[in-house]
């Protein structure tokens, strides 16, 4: 388990949900997928979700699944409606310029130094 904030620093991520603090949020791993049902079926609570999907439904999926943060790859940024919903549900949204492979790789390294 590592601090979400350490991971966000490692991927030069931007917190799109600045109303939500990264302080004290621990993560156990990640699930990497763009198909929502696969995420709901296989992601574990406490894992971040690395994806390029950014429409409103991802917030519901994260909330139902117990995902604390969504990491958007390749500089994807969600729009205001999605950010507002995320804040309401307490889901942290992070945008990073890195591609999915590197986002997963960097987290794997942090978790398995």
């Amino acid at each position: 388990m590592i601090n979400l904030s350490d991971y966000v620093t490692a991927i030069k991520g931007i917190n799109c949900t600045s109303a939500l603090s990264l302080e004290g949020v621990k993560i156990t791993g990640a699930y990497v997928c763009d198909m929502l049902s696969d995420v709901m079926g296989s992601a574990k609570p406490g894992q971040v979700w690395i994806t390029i999907m950014k429409h409103l439904n991802i917030i519901a999926v994260a909330s139902m699944t117990g995902i604390p943060a969504i990491i958007f790859a390749k500089g994807n940024e969600p729009d205001t409606a999605v950010i507002e919903k995320a804040i309401e549900e307490g889901i942290i949204l992070i945008s990073s310029k890195l591609p999915t492979f590197e986002l997963a790789g960097k987290l794997y390294k942090l978790l398995n130094p």
Partner: peptide, 15 residues
Amino acid sequence: EFGFGAGLGLPNIKK
């Protein structure tokens, strides 16, 4: 386009 269509919804419901 919305990220649905993996064919895993009904199996998830069953599970």
